[in-house]
Nucleic acid binder design. Structure first.
Lengths: 213, 213
DNA sequence: AGTTATATTTCACTGGACGCAATTTTGCAA
DNA sequence: TTGCAAAATTGCGTCCAGTGAAATATAACT
């Protein structure tokens, strides 16, 4: 966006200031230990102003959730002619894991860590994931009206995401999420592969995810 | 338990009083509109005492979540000799939907309604569901060490529950959850059937869930 | 009855969220 | 450059969930 009024640019800057201040303090002093007053002070803004940028304290950890959904449905829209629903879902997952910076960056690792320690954060994460899932299912059904009823689309999408989430949780129970963005992204793709290979074997068309890394 | 100290009996009574007061007020005035002070007053107890029974306001809606998990892992333990992982999972879902009063009763319908309107409630519900999923996956892997790695168990369980949850959400988007417990339970089983039939066709052994109704 | 253990109440306090009015900042036009 | 309307920001104040600690009450045990 080259054309932005000065107002919008400044707003973006303070928004970014809030985000960096928040993640910074979260990393150094912990999530619950950091108050909104602290963040406001660090961002040189009033506490009240934070709520004009983010709806809640938790949302400071999910600043780009819309973009992630957007990437996924974009991948669905830009499907290859020969692909079936399963392939499309798969590609939507991997590309959305790559395009949006939401899965990389230092905020991603922080979020993964906080998800397992702060209940409120986990709850918000699951909510976001669920909303994304509903949206994806809706678009998938719209794109394959012949092959998928809305119900089948919901079931298939839920199964996919559920499988990946389940394996991800198990995986990060014993293994710390890597700090390095590149490594983190590779790990996520590997876990996706682990979660979904049984599928790809039995149902339709083998495909190696590692080609996407 | 016929033999219970007076203390335990009284404690159970007040616990029940809190629950009925809470669900009552939630139904009549709404969740966010009802304060903990209201509930405390209705239960004739101090607000502070509520927290010695329940950890949070949301948890007033999930009083028996442990029992639900217990029923599920009980069903896994008491599996039929010939059943594979898929059948066991299926039976665990249906029986846990029947044994625990958590899915029936007027609190279940209320909860389903609030899950779609109050974000905090939805978050808590997803958290409970996720915890249950992890527990179930762990037990499933323990019971089928030959057929399932811990990872496959996590993926399979996540896929199952994810599919059911996704379809459930879609279903209740247009259709109000029925108030009548019997009808509600039947609906849940029907939705489960809808979500999982594609599976049962392709993978292993057809089975009609309606025999469980 | 007296003693110990466990609930419950009371009170004071923190922190997140939000409504509202006053005030400052900014974009833009005369 | 100045003036003005719109938008952003601030500084209150309020509400409510949740916590800590001390005081009080109540059951259990001997």
């Amino acid at each position: 966006m080259v054309f932005m009024t000065l107002r919008e640019r400044k707003r973006l800057r303070t928004r970014q200031a809030i985000l960096t201040a928040a993640t910074d303090l979260f990393e150094r002093h912990g999530y619950t230990e950091t108050t909104l007053d602290d963040i406001a002070a660090a961002a040189e803004i009033s506490k009240r102003a934070i709520f004009s940028y983010f709806a809640s304290k938790e949302d400071l950890l999910f600043p780009e959730s819309d973009a992630r959904i957007g990437a996924a449905i974009g991948a669905i829209a830009a499907r290859q002619p020969g692909d079936g629903p399963v392939q499309v879902l798969l590609r939507a997952m991997t590309t959305s894991a790559q395009e949006s910076d939401d899965l990389t960056g230092r905020r991603a690792a922080l979020r993964l860590r906080l998800m397992r320690t702060v209940p409120a954060v986990r709850g918000r994460a699951l909510q976001h994931q669920f909303d994304a899932q509903r949206e994806i299912a809706r678009h998938l059904a719209a794109v394959f009206p012949a092959d998928l009823s809305p119900i089948s689309a919901a079931a298939l999408t839920g199964a996919f995401i559920g499988a990946v989430t389940g394996v991800l949780d198990l995986f990060f129970e014993e293994q710390e999420p890597p700090q390095d963005p590149v490594e983190l992204r590779a790990t996520l793709l590997r876990v996706t592969q682990m979660a979904l290979t049984p599928w790809l074997d039995t149902s339709s068309g083998e495909r190696d995810l590692s080609s996407d890394i």
